[in-house]
Simulated assay, not measured.
Amino acid sequence: MRLFVPLALLLIAAPLAARDGATRDSPTRDSLGVFGQWGAFRDPATPRCYAIAEAQPTTNRRDVQPFASIGSWPARGIRNQLNLRLSRRLAATPRVRLAVGGERFDLIAGGGDAWAPDARADAAIVAALRAASSMSVSATDAAGNRFTDRYSLDGAATAIDAAAVGCARR
C-alpha cells in the first residue's frame, strides 16, 4: 500500500489541476514530496501549492474518487484553504460536517465539493488536522442517503508545510 500512495497522489493531482484551469500548455506540476498518506505539489503556472490525499478505501458506493486538499494561492493572498471532493453528488441543500479528532466543523458545499465557510474556519481546520490522526466528512447525497469519506492524517502536517514552503520559494 505504501508504494501505491505516490502513484495514487499523482493520479488525483492531475484532475485537480485540470479542474482549476490548467491547460495542456501548462508546465508539469512539481512534486514536493510524499509524506505518509499525503503528497505536496506546486503548480508554477497558476501559481499555487497544495497538500492532497485520497480518502481511505471502502466497499461503499462512490460516484468519484474523493480527495482532500489544503491549497495556497500566494498571488491571491489565499493560504491553507480546505477543499474536499466528496465521493457522491450532494443533495440540493446538503448538510456537510467535517470531524477532525474531537472537533466538528460545518462546511459549505455544492455539487460534489465542500469548503470551510471562511478563512478563520480554514485556519481552525488546519490546526485540528495537525493534532489528529484521522478525519471524516459526512454528507447527504442526491438520493437522500448519508455517506462518509474517511482520511488518514498520517503525513498531513508535513505535506501542508512542504506546500507552504514550495510557494514561499517561488
Rank of each mutant, 00 (worst) to 15 (best):
M1D: 15
R2I: 07
L3N: 09
L3G: 08
L3W: 10
F4A: 08
P6F: 06
L7P: 01
A8K: 15
A8Y: 13
L9G: 06
I12M: 11
I12V: 14
A14K: 09
P15H: 03
P15N: 05
L16H: 10
R19I: 07
R19G: 01
D20C: 04
D20S: 08
A22N: 12
D25S: 06
S26W: 04
R29V: 08
S31G: 03
L32H: 00
G33C: 03
G33K: 09
F35K: 09
Q37L: 07
W38D: 09
G39W: 03
G39S: 02
G39K: 06
G39Y: 02
R42A: 14
P44Q: 07
P44D: 13
P44Y: 10
A45N: 08
T46W: 13
T46E: 15
C49T: 11
C49W: 07
A51N: 02
I52N: 06
A53C: 05
A53D: 00
E54Q: 13
E54W: 05
E54H: 10
E54S: 14
A55P: 14
A55E: 08
P57C: 11
T58N: 12
T59C: 03
T59L: 13
N60L: 15
R62L: 13
V64I: 11
F67R: 13
A68H: 08
S69N: 07
S69Y: 01
I70T: 05
I70Q: 02
G71F: 00
G71M: 00
G71V: 00
G71K: 00
S72D: 12
W73K: 08
A75C: 03
A75I: 07
R76M: 12
I78S: 12
I78C: 09
R79W: 08
N80Y: 00
N80R: 14
Q81A: 10
L84M: 04
L86I: 09
L86M: 12
R88T: 10
A92C: 03
R95L: 06
R95C: 03
L98K: 00
G101T: 11
G102I: 08
E103W: 04
E103S: 13
R104G: 14
R104Q: 15
F105G: 05
D106R: 07
D106K: 06
I108N: 13
I108K: 12
I108E: 15
G110D: 06
G110H: 01
G111T: 11
G112H: 09
G112L: 11
G112D: 14
A114K: 12
A116R: 04
P117D: 01
D118R: 06
R120L: 07
R120I: 04
R120Q: 10
D122P: 12
D122N: 15
A128C: 01
R130T: 08
A131T: 10
A131Q: 14
A132L: 04
S134G: 15
S134A: 15
M135C: 12
S136M: 12
S136P: 12
S138Q: 11
D141R: 06
A142Q: 11
A142L: 11
G144Y: 00
G144M: 00
N145C: 05
R146N: 03
F147C: 04
S152E: 14
L153E: 11
L153G: 10
D154V: 14
D154T: 15
G155T: 05
A156Y: 08
A156I: 11
A157V: 08
A157P: 05
A157L: 09
I160C: 03
A162M: 04
A163D: 04
A164M: 11
C167S: 01
A168H: 02
